[in-house]
Design a protein around this nucleic acid. Structure first.
Length: 119
DNA sequence: TTTCTCACA
DNA sequence: TGTGAGCA
């Protein structure tokens, strides 16, 4: 699965090696390492980097993006639990909670026009 | 030649 | 985030 070197990823994402390594440090991507310590990125990693690039361009900070991916895991866990128990929160409720968390993390104003999450 | 880690006028 | 050093 991991087949891209950092050089290839640089071309594919238009990010600098510095940025790519930094995002890895922030655990936004998890490239494998070769026996000689070289990073090997998967298609998913490249995809993730492109996403990160977009969010960053929209003015979000790294911590907000980090929380997004962590809260998404949380969201799936909650949805699973709810399915096995009783559905108290609707999809919209979870969405609203997630959105509020992101706003909190990014320091954005609830009046902003372009939000990738809608609402 | 490319990538890696570390450190900072 | 950029950049240069010294390695592998």
């Amino acid at each position: 699965m991991a087949v891209f070197t950092i050089g290839t990823v640089m071309q594919l994402t238009d990010l600098t090696a510095r940025q790519i390594r930094y995002y890895e440090e922030q655990e936004l991507v998890h490239p494998k390492r070769t026996d000689t310590n070289r990073r090997m990125f998967s298609l998913n990693d490249v995809d993730r980097l492109l996403e990160v690039k977009d969010y960053l361009a929209e003015g979000l900070n790294i911590t907000a993006i980090k929380r997004m991916y962590s809260t998404e895991r949380l969201k799936r866990q909650q949805e699973e639990e709810l399915e096995n128990k009783q559905k108290n929160l609707t999809d919209e409720d979870v969405r609203r909670i997630l959105y509020k968390e992101i706003l909190n993390a990014s320091g954005f104003n609830p009046g902003d026009s372009n939000k990738p999450w809608g609402r």
